[in-house]
Structures are given as structure tokens and as C-alpha cells.
Write a protein that binds this DNA or RNA. Structure first.
Lengths: 156, 156
DNA sequence: CCTTTTTAGTTAGCCGGCTAATTAAATAAT
DNA sequence: ATTATTTAATTAGCCGGCTAACTAAAAAGG
């Protein structure tokens, strides 16, 4: 099958970009943590909601969207499902009839340890073979790169 | 409102994990490149199909799934849409009646330059403020980390 | 007080991703 | 040759994410 130079298929230059490598790492990482979360009946993305609520329970819907860096309709749907699973509870905000506040149920609070453990295992797998110094370097670079992508994310 | 230690809301330990930072970078990065791709009517994820086809046109559906690191049903749907947009064409594989081969249309081939440009701009934004050495280090770490997550991804 | 504008969430609908179950063709085994 | 098995792709249905359009309450202005 020696066509006119056909079949060589050298890898495309775009594949050597850092941007490309990052995209692939992202996808793989989401899959990796999703696999662990599935053990607790969670889908990737939902763990982020939990972290925000462990940190400050009773958030308003909109504030949750801001902290997650996600659009309001996404929050609406995720909360509906998490509520359906009994992980979260939505109560009206007494001071604003348009708003509501999100609270963890006991079930939601019980997920803190196992899910934190997922992160730990996920990180273990992610950083395997890297020295302590390399890990610190990697973390530092991620933080800087993140602040490039999410302007003004210093606090969150 | 000084309840029993309530309202402090220190950031949750999980948020200091490299794994967490990576997840956030991922999300932001996908959004960043998605924004650029939208200028050409593409959705994030579709650019990956294009890269594979620029590299080797006429791939079988299953092989495409493997290279993208994605499940077959995902390929089915993406290709249906890309075909609907006239970017890609599916032709039956003469040697196997269950299979098909995917070919870029002229429109699909015409996207190579503009989309490669999206990647370049995306990378620019991503790596702003990093020295050449830091960029190399970051790239190297990404590649290593990726091989932790996707065992045997040396070639792709 | 009433009107206008801003803000908070929801709905509808699309896309990329997944799993589970199905169809149909190719291959292996008898 | 017939049967059993494996493989290729699709369908159905769910989830996280998005945009656009809408509803309803709060806040600002007159």
C-alpha cells in the first residue's frame, strides 16, 4: 500500500502543543476521578458542588454558580438531581422570594470523607512517579495557568 | 452572627489538592478553547476529531474512538453532527460491511488553518507570563502525568 | 404610588461524554 | 455447512455543560 506518500500519518503539529496535552490530561483526569466517584453513586461535576457546600453550607443558587464557574441553568439541573438523590435540600430564602438556599442533608455530609478520599486516590494516580519537588512545581504552574484562564480567581 | 464557629468558611482542604487545581484548569481550558472554536461554528470536542482526520483521513469509526479515547456511541453522535455540517463524510468500508470510513470534506480540510490558529491563541493565553523554561517544564510534566492516567499512550 | 430596570432562577434545546442493550456482519469452531 | 462467538456500530437514555428565551420578584426612579 505504498501510495504517493500516503499512509505515513506523521503526528499533526497541533498534537505537540501544550494546549493539546492539557486537553488530553483534562479528559483523562475527569474520567479518572469519575471512575472513583461512581463508587459512591456520583457523576463527575457533582463533587464540586459538594466541596462548595462542605465549605459553606446554605449557599444561594447563584452564588453556587459563581463559585463553580458554571452557568445558572447548569446549577438548576444539578441541584434537581442531587435533591432527587437526597444529597442536598433546597429551602426558600426568607429574605428574597426569588432565591433559595442549598443545604446538605446528612447523606450529603456523610459523603465528605469518602469523596475526599477519591481525590486523594486520584491525586496519587495522577502524580505517580513525580518527586516532591516536581509535584510542587506542577501545582505552582497549574495555579498560575489557572489565573491566566480565570482572571480574578485568586480567592476561589 | 457569631454562631458556634459558623460562618468562617475556610477553604476546604480538598481545594488545595493538585488534583483539584487540575480539574479547575481543565474546565477553564475547555471553555477557553471552546470560545475560540465557536468563531468557526465548532463545539469543544469536535476539534479533536478534526486533528485525527487531518493526520490520517479515512479512519474507521472504531479506530477514531480509540484515538480520541472516547466510547463508540460518542463517535456515532459526533460524526452524525459533523456530517450534518458538511465537515465530514462517512463512506462504507469496502472490505467490511459493518464498518465505515470517515473522510474530511473540502470544508473540513479548510478548517485546518483556522483551528490550528485557535490552538495557538489558546496556548498563548494559557502560558502567558511563563518563561520558556517554565513552559518546557510544564509541558514535560503534563506528558508524564498523562501517561499516568492513560497507560500506554506513548504513541498517541 | 406606580413604572422601569435589574437580578434570580427556570425551561427548552443543543452538544460532548458515558453505560447498557441491540443489531448485524465477520470469524471461529464444530 | 451450520452454529457459536467475537467485533463494529447504533440506539436509548442519562449527566454535566452551554446559550437563548422566559418568569417573577426586588430595587431604583419618577
Amino acid at each position: 500500500m505504498g501510495g504517493a506518500g500516503n499512509g505515513v500519518a506523521r503526528t499533526h503539529p497541533v498534537k505537540r502543543r501544550t494546549s493539546f496535552a492539557l486537553a488530553k490530561v483534562c479528559k483523562a483526569h475527569r474520567g479518572s476521578i469519575g471512575e472513583l466517584l461512581a463508587e459512591h453513586g456520583l457523576h463527575p461535576g457533582q463533587e464540586m458542588v459538594l466541596v462548595e457546600l462542605w465549605e459553606s453550607d446554605g449557599l444561594r443558587g447563584g452564588e453556587l454558580a459563581v463559585r463553580l464557574g458554571v452557568e445558572p441553568p447548569t446549577v438548576t439541573k444539578m441541584l434537581r438531581r442531587l435533591e432527587g438523590c437526597g444529597i442536598v435540600e433546597r429551602r426558600p430564602d426568607p429574605s428574597d422570594a426569588r432565591s433559595f438556599r442549598v443545604y446538605l442533608t446528612p447523606e450529603g455530609r456523610a459523603l465528605e470523607e469518602p469523596v475526599a478520599d477519591c481525590w486523594e486516590r486520584s491525586e496519587e494516580r495522577l502524580l505517580a512517579g513525580l518527586s516532591e519537588e516536581e509535584r510542587r512545581t506542577f501545582y505552582g504552574l497549574l495555579v498560575r495557568v489557572r489565573s491566566n484562564l480565570v482572571p480574578g480567581c485568586g480567592s476561589r
